[in-house]
Design a binder for these strands. Structure first.
Lengths: 270, 270
DNA sequence: CGCTAGCTTGATCTCACTCAATAGCAGTGG
DNA sequence: CCACTGCTATTGAGTGAGATCAAGCTAGCG
């Protein structure tokens, strides 16, 4: 199986969206039962799109913001910096994630948001979100739910750092990403593209790149999983999940329905 | 200065609430500008109160819930257990915190909620919250904001585990608790009651109780802070915050107004 | 072709863990 | 009243997982 290149991360062959318009908008999590009007309201709330190059900072800590970004293509992260300049990632976002919906109620963020790869986002002005909130209670609760999912993931990241050792952390993270990518059709369950360096992985799991390298070798030797360049191939998902103590319940996929099922949002107005 | 005993943690002398009714309800975070009718709606949504003894589990992971709990007195925690049975705390709740408002949209939790001390909560049925959500957009956003604050705190807990060493973690945690207790009038800025054992502190900071003991000795020797029994006395707040790289911005106190200023909610109906 | 970013491997060091022993204190029961 | 139990805190000695430092290796790219 040949997997697509990093530069197109998250870009399905069947959704070659023109840059100017968001034609197909994927929401990979939680947008469960939406009526046509709710879906329309969401599409209408989009004021435009923006593109980021790999490594670019999209939102800076403490800066007041009045829009929120939904990731359409590529991979983005949330991160903080320690005093010595070391970076730590506290979230990894995949296509369909509402990257900083948090900003809608917070008004400014306590962390940076950056693009890990080239990325495209759809822009939702808070003014529009407020309009949704005052007229679509059900949709509002779905959006609220999305931010709670982020919180649930944060808790798992805490668990990962607090309770797992190096190899278990990496295993847990790979399982999480695999599961989330499956939900948006970017993993077949065993193989996917992960455009992260070993330094990035270290910043997720709080390990040095040197140690990440050793851990990945162990995963190879134990025939659990291959991570080379940006290709991840899981050899034994069950044992990998077992090793990482990965329990996907926190992703709430029972409620969350992939957009693939929901269909796409059609933006009609500019 | 004599500080009150643990058994009364969070109980102000001036708010001796009868058990049967929530007369004075404190919300220590974020409930900023609420109209009288919004405050009334919130009070009306309370169906009753409940009490927990120290150590009791209030909500168990995975169990469907249809009410959310606002902590009125005492201290509660959110926690998960690793496979080997080790516990890790991922949040500490103080009087005024909406402990599991998350459950309103999530319907079941990915973690346990437990009482660290004897605790009293006010109960909000989700049915009532849904009514609020469909009629009070502003109030809804305030409640949403509360859950986002939790997420912001989660991120700081990730930062703490990822980027700080043992003594820095403890320093950071003590600064956070001090700041949050100040907001509800339970710390004078340098001295407060913290009904946690060294085992508990270890479960917050991912350290063994043995190492917590050594770290607390260091904090004593460096004349930063005294932690004995349940009494915490901060000797040099500036240096302690510096050590823990503590930046209170993530608590969003600029927006969050202590209830002390807002006044209390009066429950009129049963 | 040389340069740079990313990856690998080895040697050494250190922070925090483990194991173990002791002491203080509260509660309980004889 | 003391003896006993269990919980909490303290201190010491030995250990180990992962960090640090350093040297090569590989591959993509101008």
């Amino acid at each position: 199986m040949q997997v697509k290149a990093c530069s197109n991360f998250g870009k399905h062959p069947f959704e070659m969206t023109p840059l100017s318009l968001v034609k197909d908008l994927m929401i990979n999590r939680s947008i469960g039962e939406l009526s046509a009007s709710e879906r329309q309201a969401l599409a209408d709330a989009i004021s435009g799109t923006a593109d980021f190059v790999a490594g670019q900072t999209a939102v800076r800590q403490g800066q007041p913001v009045d829009v929120s970004l939904l990731l359409v293509e590529g991979m983005m992260t949330r991160q903080v910096y320690a005093r010595d300049g070391r970076r730590h990632l506290m979230d990894v976002h995949l296509p369909g994630d509402f990257v900083d919906l948090h900003a809608y109620a917070l008004k400014k963020l306590d962390h940076d948001v950056g693009a890990l790869t080239a990325a495209k986002v759809a822009i939702f002005p808070h003014r529009e979100l407020a309009r949704i909130q005052s007229t679509f209670p059900n949709l509002t609760r779905q959006l609220w739910f999305l931010t709670l999912l982020d919180a649930a993931m944060h808790r798992q990241w805490i668990f990962r750092l607090a309770s797992l050792d190096a190899i278990e952390r990496i295993a847990h993270f790979l399982c999480e990403i695999n599961t989330r990518l499956m939900a948006i059709g970017l993993s077949d369950g065993n193989r996917f593209v992960l455009p992260m360096t070993q330094v990035d992985l270290g910043e997720v799991c709080s390990l040095t790149n040197v140690h990440v390298s050793r851990v990945l070798r162990q995963l190879r030797e134990r025939e659990l999983c291959l991570v080379r360049a940006s290709q991840v191939e899981i050899l034994d998902l069950r044992r990998l999940a077992q090793l990482g103590q990965f329990e996907p319940a926190y992703l709430y996929f029972n409620r969350a329905i992939s957009t693939r099922a929901v269909g796409s949002l059609q933006k009609v107005s500019t």
